[in-house]
């Protein structure tokens, strides 16, 4: 009998972690290792790939531009693209937070069976390929689509959002919304709404109740949501490609270009490494923020 109850919870055999570690090693560790190694090699002569000669050129190319006239200057091109990616991801994150809090709160205040249906509805888009959904969105926000038609009927003759940065951000917001709603809902579901009622009874105004009673309780969800939206948004390329008209370059578009048309794998790898380092910095920042508030953010 005593053999079954072998220890306190959390003290089971460490060997049970082996499948997880093996999985992470195979799917993240090895590819990451290859990316870093390739970024220090020379590109292959014609086709894709690399040759096994050490070269730091890819990293030099990130910041130093050898002009066509032979002079060298600081290369602002990739810094600019990175800055754009940050802007688009930041706007997307803010938009999803603003949209998700009311949605998540509303779902959390329904009865249990309705809640289950609504949560399923939030995850429903995952059943359809992201490519098809983005194509669908393109038809909707096109100048000749329903949104354009309504805008024209309302007298906005110069309505035009498709193939602009705004379209890219709409696409990102649309795709990442469920990743914000779900963690906020998970926090909101545990919130005791009687506390809000008590605050009202004690004379607090609506905004005060939200700010001082509700928000601190859902903050872990918001922070988790920010991590789940901002970081993948930073690495997105489909939306800027399909909705931004190929002009609103995000960093992932440049990475993709280097693995295809430009055929410069070491440089593509160096850009990826740069993006990974920036992402790590962000994760650290989010951890510090959540620590400051004393929240437990399980997803980071």
């Amino acid at each position: 009998m005593s053999k079954i109850v072998r220890g306190r919870p959390g003290q089971t055999s460490p060997w049970l972690a082996i499948p997880t570690i093996a999985y992470l090693f195979l799917t993240i560790g090895i590819p990451l290792f290859i990316t870093v190694v390739y970024s220090f090699l020379q590109r292959a002569k014609i086709g894709m790939g690399v040759t096994w000669h050490f070269s730091p050129k890819a990293y030099k190319d990130l910041f130093i531009l050898e002009n066509l006239d032979g002079t060298t200057t600081f290369d602002t091109r990739y810094v600019k693209v990175l800055w754009h990616s940050f802007q688009y991801s930041a706007v997307t994150t803010v938009a999803t937070v603003v949209l998700s809090i009311p949605i998540a709160m509303w779902i959390a205040t329904r009865n249990e069976s309705t809640r289950n249906i609504l949560v399923a509805a939030v995850t429903l888009p995952f059943w359809i390929s992201i490519l098809i959904r983005t194509y669908g969105l393109r038809q909707i926000i096109d100048d000749n689509g329903p949104i354009g038609w309504i805008a024209h009927k309302l007298g906005y003759e110069n309505f035009h959002i498709i193939y602009t940065p705004i379209a890219t951000m709409i696409g990102l917001t649309y795709v990442f919304l469920p990743f914000m709603i779900l963690p906020i809902y998970a926090s909101a579901e545990r919130f005791d709404f009687r506390l809000a009622e008590a605050a009202y009874d004690l004379g607090a105004k609506r905004w005060t109740v939200f700010r001082r009673i509700v928000f601190p309780s859902i903050r872990p969800g918001v922070i988790a949501g920010i991590a789940l939206v901002f970081i993948p948004a930073l690495g997105s390329f489909l939306q800027s490609d399909m909705l931004g008209g190929g002009k609103t370059n995000m960093i992932a578009n440049v990475i993709a270009l280097n693995f295809t048309q430009a055929r410069n794998w070491p440089f593509g790898c160096a850009l990826s490494v740069l993006l990974i380092l920036l992402t790590l910095l962000l994760v650290q920042a989010i951890r510090l923020i959540s620590k400051k508030f004393g929240d437990q953010v399980s997803l980071v």
Partner: peptide, 19 residues
Amino acid sequence: PQEVRDMYTQVFTTWTSSQ
């Protein structure tokens, strides 16, 4: 050849990231 192709890439990248 590669050296020329690289100039194509450079011009194209500079242009698309200036949009």
